[in-house]
Design a protein around this nucleic acid. Structure first.
Lengths: 146, 146
DNA sequence: TTTTCTGCAAATGCTTTGCATGGGA
DNA sequence: TCCCATGCAAAGCATTTGCAGAAAA
């Protein structure tokens, strides 16, 4: 995981460079995304931002994310069901390991794509059932709670 | 590519097994999907089916695809923008090579995931710009037409 | 002060649903 | 004949858009 503080600074610098304004709402979204290990959904970001700024609208979250996508500071992980999750900590393509039950998304350590399925399964306790470069599976927690 | 004829038979057998009816519209959708090299969109399938059955509705195409997904006879390739493409010829996870300009989707031959990016780029003329297990890039045709 | 951003509400656009009719088996 | 599938239109829903007021710079 990249240093959230540095990520935030990078994002802020990029916004300033593009002469875009740093509003409290935007700052809140940037903070959440720069610290994200959980790869939050729009809805999740919305809830968190509303904790600090109760009048924030969903539209603002969407607009901010569209903005960040345009300047390459957030990675969108879109799914077939139309839902999307976001990674502002590592905004570049990298493998994901996704639990199809609890929807947890983690970033595996492996850089190589060779024999990754077996390797990831062993290291994380996931049972791999599908893939994409995104690997889908069931995390160890969900395997126990069945 | 799998033999379209056999794929069609497999799909039909599965429908019968589940006691689902084989209607002309469904048969048309199955045929298109079993022969798909182009990984058609719902809209594309709709247009083709309407060639033979002009009264067919979009809802029927959607319902048929949902059905096929449930019985594992079609692979959905969903994108961040909400659009989806379908593969009924190889309804199991496999790598895709996607042109971000003309939206062509092809199935590369390689089975290994090692050094695939460079390999695919060389073999197909794509310039790889992103990936997923789905690899995104620009196909040779679009590189020429710039 | 200027220009951009916010937040509300309305508009989109794709997908799903409900239901009466039609058609497989 | 009995159900299931079709096709139309309406409903859903996540996302986008338009615009007047608010607030960065």
């Amino acid at each position: 995981m990249a240093d959230p503080q540095k990520r935030l600074e990078t994002m802020l610098a990029k916004l300033k460079e593009k002469e875009m304004r740093i509003t409290p709402q935007r700052l809140a979204v940037l903070k959440i995304l720069s610290e994200s290990c959980e790869h939050p959904s729009v809805e999740r970001i919305y809830e968190q931002v509303r904790g600090d700024f109760p009048t924030t609208s969903l539209a603002t979250i969407y607009k901010t994310i569209i903005l960040l996508k345009e300047i390459g500071e957030v990675l969108e992980i879109g799914f077939s069901d139309g839902s999307s999750r976001y990674d502002g900590n590592k905004p570049y393509p990298h493998p994901h390991l996704i639990c199809t039950i609890c929807k947890t998304i983690i970033d595996p350590d492996s850089d190589s794509l060779k024999d990754v399925t077996a390797e990831l399964s062993r290291e994380t306790g996931f049972r791999i059932t599908s893939h994409r470069l995104d690997f889908f599976g069931i995390c160890s927690g969900c395997q126990k709670n069945r």
